[in-house]
Structure formats: C-alpha cells, structure tokens
Design a protein around this nucleic acid. Structure first.
Lengths: 337, 337
DNA sequence: TTGAAAGCGCTACCAA
DNA sequence: TTGGTAGCGCTTTCAA
C-alpha cells in the first residue's frame, strides 16, 4: 500500500503535524528531525496526496486550458508552450477542446471547478461571459490568450490583432492590390474582429473600402470552411485579387480553392494567412502570413497566471499584455497581374 | 460560498448520508425524497466535490495522456481524439508532453499519480518500464497508443506498423526503386523498429537488402532532424532514389533537404511519409504517406481504458488491438529516372 | 428507508 | 520545537 503521512510519522516517532510542517517547510523544526524525516520519506517512497491537500484548501497545482480545437496546429503549439512552462513551475495542465460550443465550454468549466483547478487559461472564443462568474467568485484567476473575453476579470495576453490586420493589408496594398477580401473563422472571436478592423483601417487610409461582400466568416472545420468561403468569394466577375485569411488553416483552404479554380497563387491570387504555424512553411506555395509569437504568449500567460495565483483577488492586475505581430513574407503573395 | 452536501442535507431536512445515496443512486430512497433532494441540489447549484470523493477512494474521472510532443500534428490529432472520446464518457484528460525524456516521463508519472488519475494512455516511447510499476501496483490500467511498451501490463492499441513499412516499401518497389533508405525518429520507439522491419522484409522478398548505411535515426526536433538526416543520406554518389520517413514531419524535413539539394520530388527523389496528418495533404508536393487511423485509435484506446477501469486488476484483458494502415498515394512518389 | 459515525490524508491552529 | 486535534466534503458500513 502507499505510504501516508501517518506511516512517516510513526516511523519517525513524531506526530503527523510535524511531518506536515517538514513537508511544507513551515514551523520551526530542528535540522536533525527535518533531515531524519526527509530520509524516512525517501525510504518509504512517500508522496503527499495532492488530493487530500486540496481538500483542506491548498492548491492543486493544476491549470485548465480551454482551446477550440487542439488539432489545429496553432492551438497545439499554444498548448505545448503553456504545458511546458507550467511544467517548469510544477503545474500540470488539463487541456479541453471546446469546439467553440458554449455547451461544451460550460461542461468543461464545471468539470474544472469540481477538480479545483488553481487557474484557468482561455484560448477559446466565448460569447457567454456568465459562464465565468462561478470561477471569478471563487477567486480563480483567469487569463485569456490570443483573444479577449468581455469579462473584466480575465487578463488578456494577446498579439496586437489590429496591427496584424493592418500589416497584412499594407503588404497587399504595397504590392498593388486594391480588391482585398477577408475570410474569418468567426466574428464571435475578438481577435478576428480586430484583424478585420485593421484591414479596413489600412484600406481606408489608402482611400479604399472593404465592402461587406468581401468579408466572409463562419464555420467549424476551418480547412473546408476556408475553401468554401474562398470559392464563394472568388465567384463573381469582380473577384478579389487578394485574400486575407484570419488564420493559416483558412488560408490553406483558400489555397485549395484556388487550385480547384485553377487560379495560380500568387500570380493570379495572393493569399495571406495568420499565425505562422508550421503549416505556413510547408504549403505549396509557402504562405505569407502574420506571425503570432505563440510560444512567448504561452509562457507569458502561464507566468502571469501563476503570479496572480499568489495574490489576493483584490490585488490582481488588470493590465493587458500585448505583443506586436510580424509579417512573414513567403511565396503566396505577389503583385496582381 | 459554494454549497456542500451538508447544505443540501440541512435544506432537505435529511442526513448527508441520504443525500450521498441520492447522488450516487445507491440505497433505497423514496421517489419523493429523491426528487425533493434533486430539486434542492439544483436550487443550491450544488456540485459534488470530485476531490473529496477522490479522497474516499472514488474515481477522479481523470485520465492521463503521455505524448512526446503535442505540437506534432500527429499527437495533436491523437490528443483531440482521446480528449473528445473521454469527454463523452465524462472524463477529462491531463495531457503531458514528455519530449521523450525519461526524466520528464518520470516527473509526469509522479504528478499523475499524486493526482490520482483513473487510467493512463501512453503515446510516448519509453525505455524504462520500471517507471510504470507504481501505477501497475495501484491497479491503474494503462493502454499504449500507436506504440508498445515492454510492460505486460499495458494494453496496446496500434496500427500494424510492420505492414505499414511493407506497404511503403512495396509501393516504392513497384515504381521501380531499388535504392531505398529509411529515416526514423528514434529506434527507442517500437513502432519505428517495426516499420523498418517491414521495409527490410519487403525488400528482402524482392531480393534486395536494406544496408545499414541506409537506415538513419535519432533526434528531437523532427523537422530539422529529417532534413539533416536526408541531407546526409543523399550525399553519397550512390544515393538512394527513395526515402521512407517514419513520420510526416521527418518526411517534410526530407522534402526541405531535397529542395536545398535541388533535387526534384518526385522526379529525382521519391519520399514516403507515415501518419497521414494534415501536413501530408498540404505540402509541396503533397506527400504520399501511410495513414494511421488516429481518430479511431484514440477512441478505441479510451473505450478500452474505460472498460478496464471497471474490472478488477485480475480480470483485465491482455489483448492487442491492431488496426491495418493504408497507403495514401499523393505526389511525392514516382518511378526513378 | 434513513441516519450516525468512522474514516480518507492532510493542514492549521492552539497548547504544551 | 513539537504534538493534539478539529475540520475539509464525501462515502460507506452498521443500526435504527
């Protein structure tokens, strides 16, 4: 059977209270005793039960991570960064794929609460901020990564999406494009809206408009959705000469659409993605995209969360952490013919 | 404050034992009482604490998943399948990226034990099976997915790697290749060894050999490793005309190597991958690869694990679940010039 | 059909 | 410096 604190105490001829203090480095225990007890713990291969500790109100050293879909490389890379950093700090991470469905989000949130996570990282879009109130009222700190929620209690760590949109549009404008369309995953997500705003703004500065007909959004399966939307956008005679896709997966869908329509990329159609996931570097042609420093963001989010963990709810920060995106030019963009 | 079982009991004018029975559908409680209590639970927004339940020896409804690297699309897709299926069954999943390092594996295993997971899914290579003994002695069921451990206590769910290797080699042989080299991620992983054995066997049947110089392995960063190894293999005058890479990431590295050497794929060099991740379909050229039905495997693994959860340790299955792989022909293979 | 009470393993407070 | 002990919220006999 597994050794408990009682076994250690008995073996050491002390009370469990003493052992507990040794474990937690509290109280004043003599060097001697301390070392003796450590020795016994090692000999008995004793491992404190996180569960029992959690029951008495201590931390569980578990974080929750909500992402729409872990099989999307962007979120996989995010999960990796988060998990890595958390691991370094002694935390483990429960990863939840929400598929952007409120119902799943709710179930997961319940689950995570029941399991008493110490903190939550949200990488998924959320309509309904009420879902967070139970967490908030329990003083569980929440950071959102790569998107914002409307709740004042979540600390965002994000890339400057607006700037990203501008960057993409400017790149396209500089190459001489004037008919630029946008494909977004979902207008529910703050980051998509911001990126579109950036595009619109950049166009505006160039004296151009972003017609509503050139903004497309929606869908779950990003790849096929990107393709479907691109197909639709490219139908009209007055088709756009460039597509800005709000993520790489959508961009790849667009790439497939172009292939299907026998439009050469970048000669006949330019495509810009967003995220700079591994996908962007391997496609045919390689994708010009806006890079989100996802690894850095993941690390930052975890550090931030853990530092908030220590504080009383009152003293929590409310700062937004914003990182600037970068344009990565590959081969999917060129001057229009 | 959060409602506890005591609040519910008080409100209902019964004892906590009764409430507990209602929650767990045990004992004989009158319809009336039962409904009344359910009502009160709902009204109080009562959520049983998984932690407290776990302390008394009940399940935690948490599974552990060990993968080498969640940012590798293959494992991301695996994680997604596992997580999805687990979620359907009411379980959550703690995902751990081991980087194939024994030390990390050990830490994670400790962590998972402390948190009392109900079951473990191993998707990572493991040298040291001793790390599993603590789990085994606690009767925690373990299934390995897409690879085997040497421990008799883990139930494997895998693709027929040997057949996969053969499939790849046969495809190449049929196209007229005779100088076929193999790039593997690590010989520590059973699946790699099996795939190579399959290749060797197929070659053997065709009266050919797989020289040791044509087998390359090792490394962590799969992409750059694939490139490095391909570069090395393609150096000699007697260079191979085809490369079988033990996963898609390696294959993409090889693709990059070919580009660097200005070798056209597939005209001058054929490349076959393994896994059929999303990557394979978007590369330039799209990758011929061996498909692992990863979604199916993930589901199977979870179902298997959960069904084992119910059984006493003695009655556990020892069956291997093997699925046949499929060849997916795209554009990275052709007859040698 | 229901309830009392003994844990589960640990923490934290108060005494000694 | 150390130990006693009352919980933490829930499950599970055993009695009533």
């Amino acid at each position: 059977m597994k050794a408990t604190i009682y076994d250690v105490a008995r073996e050491a001829g002390v009370s469990i209270a003493t052992v507990s203090q040794v474990i937690n480095g509290k109280g004043k225990i003599s060097e001697e005793r301390r070392n003796e007890i450590f020795g016994i713990m090692a000999r008995l291969d004793y491992r404190p039960s996180v569960i029992a500790a959690a029951l008495t109100g201590k931390k569980t050293y578990t974080l929750g991570l909500l992402v729409p879909d872990i099989s999307n490389p962007f979120f996989a890379e995010m999960a990796r960064a988060v998990e890595d950093q958390a691991h370094h700090a002694g935390y483990s991470v429960v990863i939840c794929s929400t598929h952007n469905e409120d119902e799943r989000i709710e179930r997961y949130l319940m689950l995570l609460q029941q399991k008493s996570i110490d903190g939550l990282i949200i990488g998924t879009g959320m309509d309904n901020n009420d879902l967070l109130t139970p967490l908030v009222s329990k003083d569980i700190p929440i950071v959102s990564i790569a998107r914002e929620t409307r709740s004042p209690h979540t600390l965002p760590v994000l890339v400057n999406d607006y700037a990203g949109g501008r960057l993409a549009a400017r790149h396209l404008l500089e190459q001489g494009h004037t008919r630029i369309a946008v494909i977004a995953e979902s207008l529910k997500v703050s980051s998509s809206r911001e990126r579109i705003r950036g595009v619109r703004e950049a166009l505006h500065e160039a004296g151009l408009e972003l017609p509503d007909a050139f903004v497309s959004a929606g869908g779950h399966d990003l790849l096929s959705e990107g393709k479907r939307q691109a197909l639709a956008l490219l139908q009209p005679a007055e088709r756009p000469t460039a597509l800005f896709c709000c993520n790489d997966l959508l961009a790849i869908g667009a790439l497939q659409a172009a292939k299907e329509l026998i439009l050469r990329v970048p000669e006949e159609l330019s495509i810009v993605g967003f995220d700079n996931t591994i996908l962007a570097s391997v496609t045919d042609p390689p994708l010009t995209t806006i890079a989100q420093p996802i690894e850095e963001m993941g690390k930052l989010a975890v550090d931030l969360l853990i530092s908030e963990l220590g504080k009383a709810a009152k003293k929590r920060t409310h700062e937004r952490t914003v990182i600037e995106p970068e344009l990565v030019v590959r081969s999917s963009t060129a001057a229009p013919q």
